[in-house]
Design a protein around this nucleic acid. Sequence first.
RNA 1: GCGAUCGUAGCUCAGUUGGUCAGAGCACCGGUUUGUGGUACCGGGGGUCGCGGGUUCAAGCCCCGUCGAUCGCCCCA
Length: 414
Amino acid sequence: MSKGPQRIRGTQDIWGEEADRFQAVVAAFERIRRLYGFSRVETPVFEATAVFSRSIGETTDVVSKEMYTFEDRGGDSLTLRPEFTAGLCRAFISEGWQQLAPLKVATHGAVFRYERPQKGRYRQFHQLDAEILGSDSPLADVELLVLADQLLKDLGIAEGVTLQLNTLGDAETRDAWRAALVAHFESHRADLSEDSLARLDKNPLRILDSKDPRDRPAADSAPDIDAFLSHDARTFFDKVTAGLDAAGIAWERNARLVRGLDYYRHTAFEFVTDRLGAQGTVLAGGRYDGLVEALGGPHTPAVGWAAGIERLAMLAAAPAPAGIDAAIVPMGEAAESAAIGLVADLRRAGIACDMGYKGNMKKRMQRANASGARFAIILGDDELARGEAAVKNLVSGEQANVPLAGLAEAVRAR
RNA sequence: GCGAUCGUAGCUCAGUUGGUCAGAGCACCGGUUUGUGGUACCGGGGGUCGCGGGUUCAAGCCCCGUCGAUCGCCCCA
C-alpha cells in the first residue's frame, strides 16, 4: 500500500518459493525437451502485428481486443507476442528453416494478453512451448503428447490431470461437421443462451463446450464429428490414439473439445485439472496445418502445444529450498581480508557459499542460520595464525578445526 | 467488456450497533557485558486504515466515485 509506482495490473513480481517453483518447471521442461531431441530456439518478444492478425484472423476478439499492439517510432504496428506459435512460424519462413523440416523446437518465456486477470491468468505470463514444424505424420502428434505427459509426471502433477483428445478432421471434414452443427443449433435456437446465439454466427463450434447449463441439452445432442470424418482424417486420428496406447499414455476422448480458430486441423488436445477453478487447462495444443501457409510460407503441416508456467508451478510440489553449502564468518579486518580470497577459492571449487558485507560475529551467525547454510566457516585471528578455520555444522552444532586447504572437501555437498 | 466479493503495518489479520480504533502475531532492526546461530526474555522502527468526494458534532466502520485485488462470465492463440 505504499506510495510510488505500482505493479501494472495483471503482472507479477515473482519471489522466494514461488520463484523456485517457477524455475523448477522451466528446468524440468529444459531437461525433458533434450531427451526428445527438441532444439531450443529464441524468438523476439514482439513481431509485426500482421504476424498475429493474419494467423489468428483480423476480426476475432483475440486480435481486436486482447493483444498488446502499439506503433513504434517509424509508424510500424508491432504486437507483444500473445503466443509462441505464430512467431515460430514466421521464423520458420524468414530464416529458411524449411530445409530443417521436420523441425522439433522448444522455447519458453513471457507472453502477453490484454485480459481480465483471474486465477492462473495474467496479462504478462509465461509459457513453455513445443512444436514440430514440417511433418504431417501422426507420430509427431504422438511424440509431443508423450513429451507433455512425461513433463507433467516429472513435475508430480499428473495426479488429477487428464488428457482429453479430439479430432477436428481435415478441411473437408471440418466444413461438413460445421455445417451440420449450424443446422442442428439453428433448430434449437429457442433453447440456446444469448452467448451461444452470438456464437452461432461467429463460432458455432464453441457452443459445444459452453458452460451455460441452458446450452447443454442442445450441445449434448449435437452430432459428433465422427460421422463426418473422411477416410484420411479417420486414419490419422486412429494412428494418434494407437500411438498413445503404444506409449502407455492414458487419454480420453472428448468429442466436445474444439478450438476457436480456423487453422486447426486434426488433433486437438488439452491436459485438464479440476484444481484450478475455471482455468483448468494446464497444457493445450493441436495440429495447425494451415498456419505457415496463411503467413505466406509454403504449405507446412505442423503441430504443437503450450503450457502456462504459472499454472504448472501452482500445481507442482514446492522444491526443496536451495540453501548454500557454507557461510563464511570472518572476525576482524585481517580475517575479512583473508576470507575474501577464501570465498573466491571455495566458489571456484564449486562450493555454494556466501559472506555478509558487514556485521559482528553474532549477527553473521544469525544470518548464516537463516540462509539455510549447512556449515558456518568461522575465521578469526587465532585460526588464521594456524592456517585453519573453525567449521561448524549448523544442523548438529558440531564444530571442528579444518586446515584451509581442506575446507572445500569438508563442506562439499554429498 | 460484464457481474459478485473485498481493500487496516513487509506478511496474515483483530478492530463490536460510527465516539482512545490505530492494534496483535509473524517478519525486520537493536539489546540480554563486544569469538558462536537455531529456543527464551527486553526494547524499537513502521500504517494520513487504497485514493477522492459526501453524510455527521464525530468515519477504518455509512453513501457515491475511482483505482486495485480475488472469483466467475465473455474470450481463450
